[in-house]
Amino acid sequence: MEVIKALLLGIIQGITEWLPVSSTGHMILLDQFLHLAGSKKFVDTFLVVIQFGSILAVLILYFEKLNPFSKSKSKKEKKSTWSLWIKVIIAVIPSGVIGVLFEDKIDELFFKPSIVALALIIYGIIMIWLESRNRKPLITKFNQVSYKTAFLIGLFQVLALVPGTSRSGSTIIGATLLGTSRFIAAEFSFFLAIPTMLGASLLKLLKAGFSFTGFEWFIMFIGSLTAFIVSVIVIKFFMSYIKKHDFKAFGIYRIILGLIVFIFFMFN
């Protein structure tokens, strides 16, 4: 049963991490019906560590684009790749600093079903509003993303520290408001996930002290592997989808999910 639970949680992680729909909102609902056995320390660590699988999916799918040492790239292209990584690091700094300093306090104050539901609904409305403006994007290539714009996108990622906001959702909304195309907003959100999620996973493991049984490590491996496979499929789907569609459907979905979370916990 624990293996099946790990598979289901890995599937949810792989889907919701990349779509702007909030993995936390789904995990909160799923946790009501699916209780992973083990200590709170293990369960909390599991939910963060399975992100390794999702990160690996991005690294493999975008390996050539993110590899500044590729022999197939010209000197100019390698320089552009290094510039992209600098922009990613700059964008990660705000959430990295605030997350390390205040993560526990933020979870204590905001990790509540009512807050998660409210965040789902509010950002769903913002997403629909953004798409209703029909503004032409000013930034359609990564070399047009300035270091200042990267930092500002990073400030929007700080909002994702509030459960229910969605890391990809906050960065996509921020990037779109700053004038990027949907495609650039989505891909930059993926790239930001690499240091953000890797740092969060390592920090959680360090706090836990790596003190888990062999079976618990196996469960984490199953969850991570599942998250990896599902992430590959979802990322490919998402990037294909936004070439022809906007984010309105995700905004509507967030509002519906937010109402479900709110109603479910109001009657429980």
Rank of each mutant, 00 (worst) to 15 (best):
E103Y: 13
F218V: 06
A6M: 06
D44R: 09
G174E: 03
G124Y: 08
P94R: 02
D246Q: 01
E216D: 13
T213R: 07
V162I: 15
W129P: 11
G209I: 05
L109V: 13
V43E: 08
G169T: 09
S22Q: 00
I229H: 09
K73V: 06
Y62W: 07
D107I: 13
I252D: 02
F218Y: 14
V88F: 05
F210D: 10
L47S: 15
G99Q: 02
F190K: 00
F221E: 07
V234F: 12
I98G: 06
F265G: 04
M266T: 12
F46I: 05
V49Y: 07
K136M: 13
P113A: 07
Y147I: 14
H245V: 10
S211L: 10
L59S: 05
E77V: 08
I98N: 04
T24G: 04
F46L: 07
Y147L: 14
S231N: 07
S22E: 01
F110P: 08
F247Y: 08
T149V: 15
R135V: 14
I115L: 06
I229N: 08
L155Y: 14
F142P: 03
I184P: 11
M127P: 12
L59T: 02
V145A: 04
D107W: 11
F221R: 04
I122Y: 11
G179R: 03
V3A: 15
L9N: 09
T140P: 09
L84V: 00
I50D: 03
A208P: 11
D104F: 15
L225R: 00
S168D: 02
Q51E: 06
K87R: 12
K78V: 10
